[in-house]
Design a protein around this nucleic acid. Structure first.
Length: 465
RNA sequence: GUGGCUAUAGCUCAGUUGGUUAGAGCAUCGGUUUGUGGUGCCGAGGGUCGUGGGUUCAAAUCCCAUUAGCCACCCCA
């Protein structure tokens, strides 16, 4: 007899966790809808070719591939099979894969549905994604992303709206001490150019920069060396570290402008960031929650403009949200020149943070307002009618399914955390009342059914968290 | 992928330098008389000590292998 288990990096969610998660999703949904986003869903798995080549080489390897049905080996390429070249063989034995994020499937969706949609199109999407990563703290193989994207406009008001949504969403969830870091790929591009990094090494450069917080300056230097980036580029990194210490976003942007000189793209990006920060501040996003971080890089290949990341100080997980502008993600699906920007809330990591700081509101997972006890006679006519009357009055109710001893029935109600128990015995029926016990207080009264219902309605549903 | 730690009841863990029938708490179930839960008291069930080999008169304990999990590194959102 082997104990059952679930794959590493996956989790079961019990009633308590689900009460919290549903509240989390409801809260974010409310924020998205308040900003005019509409929901969509896409399939859990896509054609493998839709996903590959969008997330960088590392990302591609983390995509969960689905083996073809049928006798896939018989149909596989003989030569590749014999050479045991897994990577090359994949294409001939797998045509589908679990989605890796919600953004690429969204781009695919937009291209396919373009004639049905009105642009700019604002959608939100709360669904699972899968990554074949090595699981660890705050790292799952299956997790839920809550995305909202605006596609079909280059207006920087879209970035502003998403920053507001970060602030409104995380505030509504009660996430403490979150910090929205913003940067721009165009600025990064210019920085790498100014520091003498060949254009072909830009991606390598961003990967190394992204690691700074983990590996330190020496680590980045080693990265540069192993990736063939001139050591002279280190000077810039140190400058950027200084900028991080700037008193505010305005000062940071000013220093960055000095480093960059007159590159046109970068100048525009700097101006846009400046505007974004100002407008966000005016829109009520506190300065302490918003930081311009010249070292924020982000790994995904498709970002071209503003990029975002949200971290929580002292939290046991990495970033809880991410996002950015992608100028032409639909281009790879055959529709060029459609710019979009989006952000993603990592529900599972936010859940981890709230667990860590014990920051959940009081949520009931009881799901039952009143339980009707069953008499030994097993004649349930009056009980069924009472339970139904409760439901018609908008209460959730159930009749205990067996004519068990009261001790057992009351224990069941207690263990479930049900506050109210109704008893309709001989005596009650004779006098046209019900007995209603308040499990929280321990009192019990006899009163007409209608009054009992009113009393329950006046109380809150459960008494155990 | 590298290093370290761990594996004993449903859960969390004790278990001495190897030595009789492997324990506790929690959980579960039953009892504590009439139609009533939570706290108390009494009782019960439940383990081939991760798996396979070895050393020994004797292994939960020592050795080897193997599997799984945890932590750190690496990598990444």
């Amino acid at each position: 007899m082997s104990k059952p288990s679930i794959p590493k990096g996956t989790r079961d969610f019990g009633p308590t966790a689900m009460a919290r998660r549903q509240w989390l999703f409801d809260t974010l949904r409310g924020v998205f809808e308040k900003h005019g986003f509409v929901p969509i869903q896409t399939p859990s798995f896509e054609n493998l070719s839709t996903l590959t080549g969008k997330y960088g080489e590392e990302g591609d390897q983390l995509i969960f591939k689905i083996l073809n049905n049928g006798d896939y080996l018989a149909k596989a390429d003989e030569g590749l099979l014999a050479s045991k070249n897994s990577k090359a063989l994949t294409a001939s034995i797998s045509k589908k894969a679990l989605r890796y994020d919600l953004t690429v499937p969204f781009a695919r969706f937009v291209v396919m549905q373009r004639n049905e949609l009105t642009f700019p199109f604002k959608r939100y999407q709360i669904q699972n994604v899968w990554r074949g990563d090595r699981p660890g703290k705050g790292r799952y193989q299956e997790f839920t992303q809550c995305d909202c994207d605006i596609i079909g406009t280059e207006s920087t008001l879209a970035e502003l709206e998403l920053v507001q949504i970060f602030h409104e969403g995380l505030s509504a969830l009660g996430v403490p001490g979150f910090r929205i870091a913003i940067n721009d790929r165009r600025i990064l591009q210019a920085l790498s150019e100014v520091s003498g990094v060949p254009a072909s090494s830009f991606t390598d450069w961003t990967v190394a920069v992204d690691k700074l917080d983990k590996v330190g300056l020496e680590g980045v230097a080693r990265e540069f060396e192993s990736r063939g980036i001139p050591g002279s580029a280190m000077a810039m990194i140190e400058n950027l570290l200084d900028i991080r210490k700037a008193s505010d976003a305005h000062a940071a942007l000013g220093q960055m402008a000095e480093l960059l000189g007159a590159g046109e793209n970068a100048t525009q990006a700097l101006q846009e960031l400046e505007d974004l920060v100002c407008r966000a501040k005016r829109a009520g996003v506190p300065e302490r929650n918003l930081h311009v971080d010249p070292l924020l890089a982000r790994g995904l290949d498709y970002y071209t403009g503003a990029i975002f990341e949200v971290v929580v100080e002292g939290a046991p997980v990495g970033s809880i949200c991410g996002g950015g502008r992608y100028a032409d993600l639909t281009g790879i699906f055959g529709w060029k020149g459609v710019s979009g920007v989006g952000v993603s809330f990592g529900a599972d990591r936010i859940e981890d943070v709230l667990n860590h700081v014990d920051g959940w509101p009081a949520l009931s997972n009881v799901g039952l307002d009143v339980m009707v006890a069953q008499m030994e006679s097993g004649d349930v006519k009056a009980e069924l009618a009472a339970a139904q009357a409760c439901r018609q009055a908008g209460l959730s109710s159930e009749l205990y399914p067996d004519s068990a001893k009261f001790k057992k029935q009351f224990k069941y109600a207690n263990d479930r955390g049900v506050r109210w128990v109704m008893v309709l015995g001989e005596d009650e029926r004779a006098s046209g009342v019900v007995s209603l016990k308040d499990m929280a207080e321990g009192h019990q009264d006899q009163l007409p059914l209608a009054e009992a219902i009113a009393k329950i309605q006046a109380s809150s549903a459960g008494f155990i968290d």
